[in-house]
Design a protein around this nucleic acid. Sequence first.
DNA 1: CAAGATATCAATTGATCGCTTGAATAACAA
DNA 2: TTGTTATTCAAGCGATCAATTGATATCTTG
Lengths: 228, 228
Amino acid sequence: MSSRHAKDALFEAIALMGKAFASPRRLELIDLLAQGPRSVEELARASEQSTANTSQHLQGLHTAGVVTRHHEGTRVRYALAGDDVLDLWLALRDISATRLAEVERAAGAYLGETVEAIARTELESSLRKGDVVLIDVRPEEEFEAGHIEGALSIPIDELEGRLGDLPAGAEIVAYCRGPFCAFASQAVRRLHAAGRSARRLDAGWPEWKLAHVDAGRERRPDAVGPMS
Amino acid sequence: MSSRHAKDALFEAIALMGKAFASPRRLELIDLLAQGPRSVEELARASEQSTANTSQHLQGLHTAGVVTRHHEGTRVRYALAGDDVLDLWLALRDISATRLAEVERAAGAYLGETVEAIARTELESSLRKGDVVLIDVRPEEEFEAGHIEGALSIPIDELEGRLGDLPAGAEIVAYCRGPFCAFASQAVRRLHAAGRSARRLDAGWPEWKLAHVDAGRERRPDAVGPMS
DNA sequence: CAAGATATCAATTGATCGCTTGAATAACAA
DNA sequence: TTGTTATTCAAGCGATCAATTGATATCTTG
């Protein structure tokens, strides 16, 4: 009975995907890819690591089935393999935050002084009423790869220069990559310094997108059958 | 600006949990714990590895926040830290199956010849009509830690001896740990050999339990705020 | 074709991981 | 107390991993 051997092989295969999420560098790449497809060089720059290392990790992610790759002329465009992978990453991130004090500490240290947040559902109704101005403070290429409908693209670096675009009395809501991204918090603090009323969205574009794709769907789209 | 350092620390902290899912041995332990709490020795026996190694991995899982531990006299009882962790594990498992051909191959090799499966929703309505006899072919201690209401516990090892407990003409449905567990498939094949009509449930107790806990709830129970 | 940009490969290093072994600790029972 | 059982600790060794470096392939453009 080689059932032990077969079982080992099964868990080993699953662990191939688990390993994809076991390195901080790879997680950062996944987090960036959650905003939209990117080339190797862009990812390397955004994650401040060498191109070679980035490429190496991306290949690892590819053989783990976590990202797709296609060539576009001289460059290679990587993307998350699907919404299920995005969901998995967000789940890992959120659960690690609730279960590991270390994560919350690190998040607090990275985000800086806490700013007031607004929940997605509340923002939705405010948007319908036209109560708020919504700004996307991510880099422009991420905005272009996908953004919340009705949002204004104001990359965090340009914020001060574009205060004029924002109606004086309006309440402003800023969002960025997600709850652990510092852009929105930073934007809110700077807006406050400029005398504006502002809050951050407690989520990012990926969460928003998933929430709208999933609306009215099953939790896990039909568990995988025993084989199929 | 030490923001790079802070960001690294954050991803490194999240990767602590990712690493928990990066080893086949640990995944097997998680899979066993998904059936219910167990002691170190039981887990070591069930996963066919040394007690020392099992203990070591369990400690790793504990510091990763994936399992809880409490002492009961001379033994230590480990359990999954929560339903969110269970959900994460099932998601990783299912996604790896859809994205990695290797996983499906290994699953096929382990499960043996495919048997006909029945979906959870179909089983639910059959149960209401009293159409089927449902048997739980996991080891008895797992049945006792939790099982589908109305199921009969017939550990796979005792199946032949207890054929008499099963009404002759009835359609039988067998379930076990999950879609990648071999017990149910094996049970169905043996029941067929005994001239019975049988199918396997395409999921296991953990999936069933989660589906019933989740019924009528939000997808992800309130994404973690930026800090909270 | 040659030049330039993008991505990957190959080889190396130090660090970490996974498992084994044998001893140590803790709770309990006789 | 002594013995027994369950778990953890500590040391060690081979295997794997992460990052660097420098070279190589591939596509585009002039």
